[in-house]
Nucleic acid binder design. Structure first.
Lengths: 112, 112
DNA sequence: TAGGCATATGATAAAATTATCATATAGATT
DNA sequence: AATCTATATGATAATTTTATCATATGCCTA
């Protein structure tokens, strides 16, 4: 018998995809890749983040389908899947403009 | 070298809004409120979550502008801001359908 | 095939998030 | 006012997430 799973239109999987966006490292990487594809080394240089930190987080982004990898010599070029990411981010824009100030009182914030 | 801070169209504020979605308690509450407005007690009953857990998380959702409160007697009715939330979630749908399986190999997942 | 880059991976320490417990506040009812 | 019900809040424990360190793997060129 297969594991019964309730069908929610919006289930836990959603949470995991949102989580991919909710972390500073990954979000900065996404920002950079919005401009153009980059190798791991380039991302490290531009962000100042350590290499393994970048690699670990890229792996997550790849599993989530947010980035695609192509090999180029001995380096790997990461490309953003713009088709899905950009619209999601843009949708947030509108909401954010409106509520950004109230966010200051939200307990999930520690650093703004 | 001075730490130059670039102006990004997509900054840390985004991360915080995404974070509001990336937690199970809040996501379940959002799911419920998609159907109809509810009081804290009703949310507790339907989810099985403890009252203070629900209240704390509702506060976060309120600061983020995801829900609105109206007083009714001595209880408070929480209503989802459908105009912003529903489109965001729907946008995720499409992406999720496509990549859900790959997510199983992602290290941010502990529970699926 | 040896050595040098580039990237990936695993284990664990460090940090951040979340739930819980105890208690406080607010409105309603007697 | 006393008390009941509903909700909120603060402090802290528990859990989860994240970064770091050490090391491994893979591709290239001499």
């Amino acid at each position: 018998m297969p594991k019964l799973q309730q069908i929610h239109r919006m289930d836990n999987i959603h949470r995991l995809f949102f989580k991919a966006f909710s972390n500073q490292t990954r979000l900065e990487i996404i920002q950079l890749l919005k401009k153009k594809p980059l190798t791991v080394t380039e991302i490290c240089y531009k962000t100042g983040f350590e290499q393994s930190r970048v690699s670990h987080n890229l792996r997550c982004l790849e599993h989530c389908g947010f980035v695609k990898i192509t090999q180029n010599g001995n380096s790997r070029v990461y490309t953003l899947d713009e088709e899905t990411i950009v619209p999601i981010v843009n949708l947030f824009e509108k909401h954010i403009q409106k509520y950004k100030l109230r966010l200051e009182n939200c307990w999930v914030i520690k650093d703004v």
